[in-house]
Simulated scan of single mutants.
Amino acid sequence: MLIAQATDLHIGFEPGNPDEPNTRRFRALLDQLCAAPDRPDALVLSGDLTEFGDAESYARLAAMIADLPFPVLPMVGNHDLRAPFLAAFPACPTEGGFIQYNARIGPLRLLVLDTLEEGRHGGAFCEARAGWLADRLAEDAATPTVLALHHPPFESGLHWLDSGNHEPWVARLAAVVAGAPNVVGLMSGHLHRSIAAQWQGMTATVCSSSAAPAALDLRAADPETPDGRAMITDAPPVYALHRWDGARLATHFEWVAPVRPLAFYDESFQPVVRVIAEERGG
Rank of each mutant, 00 (worst) to 15 (best):
A35K: 02
A36N: 10
A36I: 15
A36W: 14
D38L: 15
D38T: 15
R39M: 13
P40E: 10
P40T: 13
P40S: 10
A42M: 02
A42D: 04
A42E: 04
A42Q: 00
V44Y: 04
L45D: 09
L45S: 06
S46R: 03
G47P: 00
G47V: 01
L49E: 05
L49W: 02
T50N: 03
T50Q: 02
E51K: 10
E51H: 11
F52S: 12
D54W: 07
A55F: 11
E56Y: 08
E56D: 14
S57M: 01
Y58F: 09
R60E: 13
L61A: 05
L61D: 06
A63S: 14
A63I: 12
I65H: 05
L68S: 10
L68H: 08
P69I: 07
P69M: 02
P71R: 03
L73D: 07
P74Q: 08
M75G: 06
G77P: 03
G77I: 04
G77M: 04
N78I: 01
H79V: 00
H79E: 00
D80K: 00
L81R: 15
L81K: 15
A83H: 11
P84M: 10
P84G: 07
P84Y: 10
L86K: 05
A87V: 15
A88I: 09
P90T: 07
P90G: 02
T94N: 11
I99S: 07
I99K: 01
Y101A: 04
N102R: 14
N102H: 13
A103V: 15
P107D: 09
L108H: 06
R109T: 12
L111W: 05
V112P: 03
L113M: 09
L113H: 01
D114E: 05
L116I: 02
E118Y: 07
G119N: 03
R120H: 13
R120V: 01
A124W: 12
F125R: 00
C126G: 14
C126P: 15
E127R: 08
A130M: 01
G131C: 04
W132Y: 04
W132E: 04
A134E: 14
L137D: 07
A138L: 11
A138V: 06
A141L: 13
A141V: 14
A142T: 15
A142R: 12
P144M: 06
T145W: 00
V146N: 02
V146H: 01
A148H: 11
A148E: 12
L149R: 01
H151I: 13
S156G: 08
S156F: 06
G157Q: 06
